[in-house]
């Protein structure tokens, strides 16, 4: 569904991603593991078009998207949830959802606020609350719900567990598995290996902008040497 090949990205003169390649197919949860500054967030931002790629090819469903602007990419059914949530704090829950709304899409689950409130019951109880007056956990739920309003086929989740209480992290894991059950493809970046093991089918390990390892979660779990080398756990 998503194919990235030979991706090179720069911030000014700093080479952030080099010859990065990865794939995600429909119905699977893929995790990008790596340290801070390894290039996980930049990979996500390059895919959604927020950071322009210097060279390389990014295809979504066979069509090239690497020269498109973010809003065109989003309209193809690619949803992006940023790591720092970026809730519209002056807008209430319903308005935040409205900003994310797009037309129903073939081959993707169609979301309405009512359906989302079944997935995130907390949000349903605070429809009129401004985003700025919600706790970190609630904001994290809202930012995912907002992206789902665009009826994406693939969703990019950038460090969804960061800064959340362990109980909320567990809830987040259940949510991701529910999305997978709906048929969504999920690409997430994580530093919390325990969390990744709860939700992901496959993993890529990224270091200094390069993919250093790729394999199923089971293979990674069995490979202590790789975990020691790249994740220091």
């Amino acid at each position: 569904m998503l194919t990235v090949e030979g991706l090179n990205t720069y911030y000014g003169r700093a080479h952030i991603l080099s010859d990065l390649a990865l794939q995600a197919t429909a119905g699977e949860v893929v995790v990008l593991l790596g340290r801070n500054g390894a290039g996980k967030s930049t990979t996500m931002k390059s895919v959604i078009g927020l950071v322009p790629a210097e060279s390389g090819a990014i295809s979504f469903d066979g069509a090239r998207i690497d020269r498109l602007s973010p809003h065109r990419i989003a309209r193809l059914g690619l949803g992006y949830v940023p790591e720092d949530r970026r809730i519209f704090t002056d807008l209430n829950v319903m308005e935040n959802l409205e900003v994310g709304r797009q037309k129903p899409r073939d081959g993707a689950p169609t979301w309405t606020p009512e359906r989302l409130f079944e997935l995130f019951p907390n949000l349903g109880r605070m429809k009129d609350r401004p985003g700025g007056r919600m706790s970190g956990g609630e904001q994290q739920m809202l930012t995912i719900a907002r992206t789902l309003m665009g009826n994406p086929r693939l969703i990019l989740l950038d460090e969804p567990s960061e800064g959340l209480a362990p109980v909320i992290v567990e809830q987040m894991a259940r949510t991701i598995l529910q999305l997978k059950a709906e048929g969504l493809c999920v690409l997430l970046s994580e530093q919390n290996l325990h969390f990744a093991q709860m939700v992901a089918d496959r993993a890529y390990i990224i270091e200094k902008g390069r993919i250093r390892y790729s394999g199923t979660m089971a293979e990674l779990a069995a490979d202590a040497a790789v975990r020691e080398q790249y994740l220091s756990v």
Partner: peptide
Amino acid sequence: EMVGALGVN
């Protein structure tokens, strides 16, 4: 920027 990433021109 976020508005753009949500599909708004």
